[in-house]
Amino acid sequence: MSGPTRLVLASRNAAKLVELRRILAASGLDVELVGLPDGEEVAETGTTFAENALIKAHAAAELTGLPAVADDSGLAVDELGGMPGVRSARWAGLRGGTREQRDEANNALVLAQLDDVPAPRRGAAFVCAAALVTPAGVELVTHGELRGELLAAPRGAAGFGYDPLFLAEGQTRTNAELTAPEKDAISHRGRAFRELARQLGPILTAAG
């Protein structure tokens, strides 16, 4: 009896790997999600989330010979004209240090940029494009979005990125105060990858 289909996630972000394993496991697919081996990061040269997700998935599929999934996601702030957008992970320009240090710098910059913006104008959305690329060149891209607002100070210690600042519509707790299952149920990444998982089975069956 054959085992689960192996997929490679085009990321070395351990927190993202854990999150996407949860999401795909909950979908009921018989897949094993593995991370990328150590090496150089792929340059995200696209101008949209979908372009960057496909760039990373193609590179991972070519490197490993496995079907690859990738996402590119970020924060789109209304008052900043949709920025940081595809530059969300490097908004403060900090390339060294730990992920936590980069997250802290990015959050601090966004807060500074919104310092005099009143609550009614602090709308924002988390946006995600999720991509699948097979070694045969099949491509699939799905999208997810979560609307909300940005608080004036961070709250919560869970999650990553801009989660401590983001209060989703209908919630009283930030994304960083939600449990992992609660966040997965509403998140932009959860929505994009659940749709990807829905379409993934027939593609992998045809490829296998």
Rank of each mutant, 00 (worst) to 15 (best):
A197Y: 04
P118M: 08
G159H: 04
G97L: 09
D38K: 06
D116L: 13
L204P: 06
R121Y: 11
A176G: 07
E177H: 03
L54K: 01
A158I: 02
R6S: 14
L7W: 06
V18S: 14
T64W: 02
E104V: 08
G201H: 13
L36C: 09
G85L: 11
P118H: 01
Y162H: 09
Q113F: 02
A76G: 10
A76D: 11
V18D: 14
A59W: 03
G81R: 04
E177R: 02
K16F: 07
A10I: 09
D78F: 05
T98S: 15
R198K: 13
M83I: 01
F193M: 14
D30H: 08
V31T: 12
G46A: 09
D38A: 15
A131D: 07
P154K: 00
M1L: 13
V138A: 14
A57R: 02
P164N: 03
P164C: 05
T48R: 01
A125C: 13
V133P: 00
L54C: 06
G3R: 08
A180S: 14
R147N: 09
T5V: 15
A61K: 02
P164K: 00
V110R: 01
K16P: 06
L20S: 08
L17S: 06
A158E: 14
A70L: 10
G82V: 12
R194F: 04
G97Y: 03
L204C: 09
M1H: 10
A130R: 03
P181G: 12
P37N: 09
T142M: 06
K16R: 09
E79R: 14
R173T: 12
A26R: 10
